[in-house]
Nucleic acid binder design. Structure first.
Lengths: 141, 141, 141, 141
DNA sequence: GTGGTCTAGACCACC
DNA sequence: GTGGTCTAGACCACC
């Protein structure tokens, strides 16, 4: 698990950790049953106060993504992979929908939007083209 | 000018005002030379702290969208209409692009994205054309 | 709002606060739109660290029971009354069901259980009898 | 003796062991005079830290349910069967009473409670009578 | 060793 | 004034 935390980012540090853990689980980098780095350990690795790490982990527990094994640490819940993927997909789809709505609403014509979408997808698909044969994982790098 | 402010929204109130003024200018509801409501007046109308209104107006001045007419109040700058339209369009286009990037990045396939875009555009274009029939989706600025 | 906090109780202080707020909302003591006591105020009143209060309030926000009005404080969400009632009822019903299951499982005969239930309801209903005409609020003292 | 330990359960592991031993004694699965599995043996069988097993056994000794036979190990005390049964029954009855009190207190009407009790008893009595037909609900200790 | 909770005190943006 | 975040350091039960 590698985290990259940016303390000057406007999203809170604990929230950055939450997202990166969910992302890692969705990606399969972190699997159900696996132990997370301990609060103290991660706190040292990232040079961040243990309380902040603990807060992120508490959030992840509330989201039913990880659970505590008494005295041993925190593990990824069974089913978390699918849950995290689903959360991600629906957040993304929703964000996409609202960006489209806002675009139409804010003066772009449907044709212009289609153009942007087409260009953007071609531009970005370059990276993805080679992975086209693996249906589910495409583009999760 | 009608503003709708939501204090429980995560974007700051002053920022909501800034956006709505720029939007109204881009739309032509507010025209160059026109006087804005005074701080006190708007503060009363929205039941919001005058400092907050003042801050929004300062921001709009910094963005060169409004300017003070000494002793008379604040007016929309000449050229603000085009500038606001341009600001809006580029913000929107950028947001759209980043939503698309994130979507690809986060596991949606290009085909799925195209599908969402297509559906959404049909859905919303319909709504825009015949606003009255779809009551709820219309005003989601 | 009166809170009674017991720091020697095994349930965490922040959790005691969370429960009492939900209870007060379910009861109607705290109504949608009403402001909660501020973090600092409650912290003084209960002689408890502000962080602990803040944590309780954050939990209540995550539970969609309260929401922040930027710069003004925290209010009870619309619909929170029903939500809190429903939460309470289902928690209680579930606890009751599992107590019954455990009782049967653990050696009490159905007849004994019925006896305990009957006695207990009679014993406790005394308090409630006079309120029998107000269907929904019965016994929420 | 089969134990099923869940480290992600909120009740401590040593406490889970204590309860299961008492339960087994109350049920007659474990009889006075019988030797308990050694700390090491149980520790291996459950893949649990020996200290945790030792702590459970200490607790059971304090509760006068088991006692050490010098050099031989730990045995179930004489009279433990009845004591465990009694402990269990009174714990259960008390839990039931408090669940009922809380239910009344928390907004369920006496009639609703009677309904839940009735349904639950029918449901579970059925299950107990013909365990084999309802696979999942049987072992919910 | 593990996480969970709490206090104390600081700084921030926002109103 | 408001809440939100973070650090620092303590203590606890559990394993």
């Amino acid at each position: 698990m590698f985290f990259s935390i940016d303390p000057s980012n406007s999203v809170a540090i604990y929230e950055q950790i939450v997202r990166q853990v969910k992302f890692a689980i969705a990606e399969g980098t972190l699997c159900p049953g696996q132990l997370l780095p301990s609060v103290r350990q991660l706190s040292q690795q990232l040079a961040i106060n243990p309380n902040t790490i603990a807060r992120a982990y508490q959030q992840l527990q509330a989201d039913q993504v990880i659970e505590t094994l008494r005295g041993r640490g925190l593990t990824v819940c069974a089913g978390a992979t699918e849950r995290c993927r689903e959360i991600r997909r629906s957040l993304i789809a929703q964000r996409l929908r609202s960006a489209l709505a806002e675009a139409l609403h804010g003066g772009l014509k449907a044709a212009e939007i289609r153009e942007i979408v087409k260009n953007q997808l071609e531009l970005l698909s370059g990276t993805v083209a080679t992975v086209a044969s693996a249906p589910n994982e495409a583009g999760t790098s």
